[in-house]
């Protein structure tokens, strides 16, 4: 391919379009949440109380901070501070790991109590509660997959920064990776509000 003028606005626009599709993908789950919350308001509260607010809040802080790191890393790169930028991206990826570890403990604790999709226990509890937990597992599971993908994309961008392909003059890859990571954060903000704080 001959050298064409690189279209940064186009690349960013394309990324935003992709974020819209991700938003709608989770949107389907939010539609279900709205409908079932309407039908089972009491059961949702009972079930929501069984989720750990402490762990949920911790994870929220972890993700917000990781988002903060990405935003900082872009500014750092734009200002030519490559080392600081690399550290910040590394920090984001590390926090993605922390998030997943906390999530792992949350899930296994639920499994120990017999709460997982299709379990005998789920068939015994009130229908609304089992719906809540099913939605919870599917939404956080899908979100978890996005955390993993986001971390991988960030690792790719980090490699780009390291080799100098992504730099103070051409940072679109890091910018787009960052946009994706912020989306993961955005979805979590709503998951946290709807599942952990429902009362």
């Amino acid at each position: 391919m001959s050298e064409h003028h690189k279209d940064y606005t186009g690349a960013k626009l394309g990324m935003w379009f992709f974020l819209f599709t991700e938003l709608m993908l989770f949107g389907g789950l939010f539609i279900l949440y709205a409908v079932y919350l309407k039908r089972y308001p009491k059961e949702f509260v009972t079930a929501g109380d069984q989720l750990s607010v402490v762990l949920g809040t911790t994870n929220t802080l972890v993700l917000l901070t990781s988002s903060f790191f990405v935003a900082m890393s872009i500014t750092a790169l734009q200002r030519g501070d490559k080392k600081f930028s690399l550290r910040l991206i590394g920090g984001t990826i590390a926090f993605a790991g922390v998030f997943l570890i906390i999530k792992y403990f949350e899930w296994t604790a639920k499994f120990h109590h017999g709460v997982y999709p299709g379990s005998p226990h789920m068939k015994e509890i009130a229908p609304g509660e089992s719906i809540f937990f099913s939605l919870y597992f599917i939404t956080t599971g899908l979100h978890g997959i996005h955390v993993i993908i986001g971390a991988l994309v960030l690792a790719w961008a980090m490699l780009g920064v390291k080799t100098g392909k992504v730099n103070g003059k051409d940072w679109i890859l890091l910018e787009n990776a960052g946009l994706y990571w912020h989306l993961v954060d955005l979805i979590w903000i709503y998951v946290f509000a709807l599942y952990y704080l429902v009362l």
Binding site: S67, V70, E175, H182, L186
Partner: peptide
């Protein structure tokens, strides 16, 4: 919260 993230973090 999300509008803060979108307007500043996501530029």
């Amino acid at each position: 919260k999300s509008s803060l993230v979108i307007s500043i973090f996501m530029h």
